[in-house]
């Protein structure tokens, strides 16, 4: 006896709901295929990359994040508000950035022994320099370098360009961003700057103009 295929043969009995009993491939054509989640393209993130600022202290970043959590807004927006406020202060003249030569002596470290010879002499006598201490001095890990502190904020390109303009060639951009953020934070804490969160409109809202 030949093998039966239940999916392709016509059913002898009919279904109580329809009365039809066609082959399965035909029946399946009436059912839509299951919808899969659309994979995110991250196009917006690609077009709006976050900016990195080296030298923004951790406590400043933490303060910004805490304010953002309190206001239920992204930290990027708080940072943006602080920077915009500080730049506005620069524009109106209430904030001045004064560059100074780094007073720390090791920043301009000199040497008397640039090569093998000694850097001093007394009436023609030129002694050999003392031997350099062996082994490198172990660096303390307790105090991280300022340049190791990096902040990432997704702020508009125009604002980032303003920071770069202010920094020009004299200051590191990260340091300028840190100063602007700190100024904004101090103004916020003093009550001079007020942040007012608004409900955001979702992208799902659509309407027709009626045309």
């Amino acid at each position: 006896m030949t093998r039966r295929n239940v999916f392709e043969d016509e059913l002898p009995e009919s279904n109580p709901l329809t009365g039809s009993a066609g082959a399965v491939p035909g029946l399946l054509s009436h059912l839509p295929p299951p919808e899969r989640k659309k994979k995110r393209t991250r196009r917006w993130e690609g077009a709006n990359r976050s900016k990195h600022y080296r030298g923004v202290p951790a406590d400043l970043r933490t303060a910004i994040r805490e304010i953002a959590e309190t206001l239920s807004v992204p930290a990027d927006e708080v940072a943006r508000a602080f920077i915009e406020y500080a730049i506005n202060c620069i524009d109106v003249g209430t904030l001045r950035l004064d560059g100074r030569i780094n007073p720390r002596p090791h920043a301009q470290k000199m040497t008397l022994y640039p090569f093998n010879g000694a850097g001093w002499a007394v009436k023609g006598w030129n002694p050999q320099p003392p031997p350099a201490p062996s082994g490198r001095r172990k660096k303390s890990k307790s105090d991280p370098k300022a340049w190791q502190e990096i902040a990432h904020y997704r702020i508009p390109d125009e604002l980032h360009e303003r920071i770069k303009d202010i920094a020009y060639i004299h200051f590191p951009i990260g340091e300028v961003a840190a100063v602007l953020l700190k100024h904004g934070l101090e103004a916020y804490r003093a009550g001079t700057l007020q942040l007012t969160p608004q409900p955001s409109t979702t992208a799902n809202v659509r309407w027709n103009s009626g045309r």
Binding site: N15, L17, T18, S20, L27, L28, L31
Partner: peptide, 17 residues
């Protein structure tokens, strides 16, 4: 398989009717 076949018939009927 017969049970599955009947289920498919039911699904189609629920969709159409």
């Amino acid at each position: 398989a017969q049970g599955l076949r009947q289920l498919i018939t039911t699904l189609t009927a629920l969709r159409q009717e």
